[in-house]
Amino acid sequence: MKAVSPERQTLLIKSMQSTLSKLENAYKNMIEKGSNATLVKKRLDAVKIALDSLENAWHGADFSYEKENILEARKVIIGILPSVEKQHENAKEGSPQKTLLERRIASIEAAIEALDVHTINFK
């Protein structure tokens, strides 16, 4: 993985935690309303694995997922990236939303890199 300062690591992990929290709330609300929450659940699971992967890479936290789950999480995370990039393009320059989206993009990219490292470890 690329070298990342401890301060940047903290920001990127917090961004991924924020994404996880938003997905947890969305999933809970959809279940309560009886909506189909399959996609949100899939993203929620992927973001959880991605967050665990970052915490493992940077802080040595436990990471014990099957290769198939890691590969699926990577695929889902990659699929989320274009919509976040599109939101970033449309956000007003200098706005807090633009900064949040920049961090979210960076955290997703770092998570993809961390997940790549984990899949290599299975080979």
Score class of each variant (00 low, 15 high):
M1C: 06
K2A: 13
K2F: 14
A3W: 14
S5E: 10
S5P: 06
E7Y: 08
E7R: 10
E7L: 11
E7M: 06
R8W: 07
T10E: 12
L11S: 08
L12C: 03
L12N: 04
I13Y: 05
I13M: 08
I13H: 04
K14Q: 11
K14I: 04
S15Y: 02
S15P: 02
S15I: 02
M16Y: 02
Q17G: 01
Q17D: 08
Q17P: 00
S21D: 09
K22W: 08
K22H: 12
L23T: 05
L23E: 10
E24Y: 11
M30A: 12
I31P: 00
G34F: 03
N36Q: 10
N36A: 09
N36Y: 08
A37P: 01
A37D: 09
V40Y: 10
K42G: 02
R43K: 13
D45K: 13
A50Q: 00
A50E: 00
A50R: 01
L51G: 09
L51W: 04
E55T: 12
N56Q: 07
N56W: 13
A57E: 14
A57K: 14
A57T: 13
W58K: 02
H59I: 02
H59D: 09
H59A: 09
G60E: 06
A61D: 14
A61Q: 14
D62E: 14
D62R: 12
F63C: 02
S64C: 05
S64M: 06
S64W: 05
S64V: 11
S64A: 09
S64I: 04
Y65S: 10
E66A: 15
E68G: 07
N69L: 11
I70E: 03
E72L: 09
E72P: 00
A73K: 08
A73V: 10
R74Y: 14
R74P: 04
K75R: 15
K75S: 14
K75C: 08
I77T: 10
G79N: 06
I80S: 04
L81S: 04
S83W: 07
Q87N: 05
Q87S: 09
N90S: 12
N90Y: 09
A91W: 05
K92Q: 13
E93M: 07
G94V: 02
P96C: 06
P96Y: 06
Q97T: 13
K98R: 15
T99V: 08
T99G: 02
L100P: 00
L101S: 07
E102K: 07
R104A: 13
R104Q: 15
R104C: 05
R104G: 05
S107C: 10
I108E: 06
I108G: 05
E109Q: 15
E109G: 03
A111S: 15
A111L: 01
E113W: 11
A114F: 01
A114E: 01
L115Q: 06
L115T: 06
D116A: 05
D116G: 13
H118Q: 15
H118I: 10
T119S: 15
T119L: 12
N121H: 14
N121L: 15
N121G: 13
F122L: 06
K123A: 13
K123W: 13
